[in-house]
Simulated assay, not measured.
Amino acid sequence: MFDQLSAEFARPMSLPFGVVVLRLAMAVLLGGIIGWEREKKHRAAGLRTHMLISLAAACFTLVAMELVNFAPQHEGDGQQQTDPFRLIEAVTAGVAFLAAGSIITSGRNVRGITTGASMWLCGGIGLCCGTGDLQLAVIVTAMAITVLYLIRRLLSPVLRAED
């Protein structure tokens, strides 16, 4: 019985263990960078939330890649039964659901849209990390920080002058 249980943890992955750890760690790090900016602004969805969203997206991506690599094929036609593109739809829909919950409207006042957008973006960053497109994930994170932090700094004086 113990052999059967230990075999469950020893199933070979299509990717080397170190690559999997790197991809997951990058998702946590890059999601954390965006979450840190939200945390500094005292938003409900901050550091930990963004890190977990990015990590979850990377995890789902790795699971989908494993399923594609180990999925049995249809007899005769050579096509796989799994569709990795459904993963993108599922992550997008799931994170959009969370993000929508962060948006609060009260009359003409709307709060949480930027936080919701950053949560959705962290899902995309996690997908990038999960597929191994770490360069794209880093570029997107840098651009997101530019939008979240630097643009606010540059536009603050202009927006105050208009009031």
Rank of each mutant, 00 (worst) to 15 (best):
T82A: 15
C122T: 12
I113W: 04
P84Q: 05
A56C: 13
L155S: 06
L52H: 03
E37Q: 07
I53G: 03
F17S: 13
F2S: 13
A10F: 14
M65E: 14
A64S: 15
V138M: 04
E89M: 10
F9E: 09
S118M: 02
P12C: 02
Q135I: 07
L62G: 05
R38A: 01
L62Q: 08
G123S: 05
A144W: 00
E8S: 12
G76Y: 08
P84G: 06
R111L: 09
F2W: 14
A7F: 14
E89P: 08
E89C: 11
L98H: 08
T141Y: 00
Y149D: 10
Y149P: 00
I88W: 01
L148A: 02
P12K: 01
E162P: 00
F70P: 01
M51A: 13
K41S: 10
E66L: 10
P16C: 08
V138T: 05
G76R: 15
P12L: 00
D133W: 04
Q4D: 12
I104K: 09
E39W: 06
I145V: 07
E66V: 04
K41D: 11
E8L: 14
N109C: 08
S156E: 09
L98Q: 11
V28P: 13
N69D: 15
V19K: 01
I103R: 05
V21W: 11
T115W: 00
V21E: 14
E8F: 10
L159T: 10
R38H: 08
I34Q: 00
G132S: 06
M26L: 15
P12T: 07
A137F: 05
G18D: 15
A117E: 00
A57P: 11
Q4N: 12
R48C: 01
C128P: 13
L121W: 01
Q80P: 10
A44C: 09
I151A: 06
G126S: 02
F9Y: 14
A56Y: 07
L55Q: 09
P84H: 06
